[in-house]
Amino acid sequence: MSDKNSSMEKLRKEFRRAIAIAVKDLRIYCLKPPVILFGVVFPFFLFISFYIGKRGPIASSIPGLVGISLFFTSSNIAPAGMPFERMTKTFARYLCAPLSFSWVVFGKTIAGFVFGSLLAILPLIVGLVAFATRITSVTTLVFTVLVSAMCFSSLGTLVATVPTEVPGNVMTVLNFIRLPLLFISGIFIPLNEMPLWARALSSASPLTFANDLLKSSLGLSHHYPLWLDFAAVAGFGLAFYAIAVLLFKVSTSAS
């Protein structure tokens, strides 16, 4: 009984310490140049250059914009912060603090999750106010944003395991992974207009399924059943997260 209590107490403490790491990361890194540049400005221009002007009503492109925004903002906090923390050796603080390493990874991931979820509201508001975007299912939309932000943030945490003290190096690796995942997703070419091989390839990107969910919750036609989309995004997220924990454990015990 008391054993169970003390392990609950330990869990509660570790959770709060992880949240403290998330809050600190958000406060320190959300305004860092790489975060603003690669997380906010870059995806916005990418979107403009590829999408606008190509097809008719702008309202139909809002889910894509929300998707890109979620994808880039959520995955940017951990990779922007980690090299700094290696350089200043503040990273060592986590290792000697009373919380297991999985909790550190959790805190780092929560930071990107919160940042991404909040910033996804911006393009949504633009759509609602200016382009007559309609939310057809609030529940689906909320769950989509939350699950996708967690998934993309885990991808960011995974990339942040690259053992470097130079932020630029991590950004390079990050974009090397993100851009292909963006191009093969159904954002620029709708899934039902793709040849079969491209559609098969698009399943390798979590953004494909997140975008499908966003379309559905914003009143547009979608390709896959919702349960499949959710399962895919969650599955990708869990895989990214598990690999991130594993890589961190390997890289810290090897040094």
């Binding site: 310490r17 403290a20 600190k24 320190i28 503040t90």
Partner: peptide, 24 residues
């Protein structure tokens, strides 16, 4: 630690308060 690993973007107060939450 051997190097003074404080958070450069944080004030002395915020550095100390972060340490405090990290140790409950």
């Amino acid at each position: 630690h051997e190097v003074s690993n404080v958070y450069p973007e944080y004030s002395a107060y915020n550095n100390l308060m972060f340490s405090a939450v990290l140790y409950s």
